[in-house]
Amino acid sequence: MGNGTSIGRVRGLGSAHSGSHHWLMQRFTAVGNVVTTIWFVVSLLLLPNFNFITVHDWLIHPVPAVMLGLMIVTTVWHARLGMQVMIEDYVHDAGAKFAVFAALNLASFGAVGFGLLCVIRLALGA
């Protein structure tokens, strides 16, 4: 841990203790978000209306179903990383931080699992 100087003692000890991988993943998922959410917004604009039949018949096709599934994965992943940064800035107590991260992870896995189940159920016509 450092070389004994003031800067050496704090190096690598930001509020998160590490971060290059997190930083890169935030960017990679951001690129995924740009692609999938722009597809989503343009698709919504191209729908003639938002009746159940229209929306349903759009989403049961393979390409829209896959794109929507990917959008759920990439946006939730990105949101999970982004919320982590906010929590690291505002929650200082180590125990509270651990608990909030545990809850954040459960919510993220739950969101992706639930969203993908809905998409699969739609695409497979249950």
Binding site: H56, L59, L68, I72, A111, F114, G115, C118, V119, L122
Partner: peptide, 13 residues
């Protein structure tokens, strides 16, 4: 936003 998105997808499903 994400809960709203999930509510919408689950409503369609």
């Amino acid at each position: 936003g994400i809960p709203m998105l999930l509510w919408w997808v689950s409503a369609v499903a």
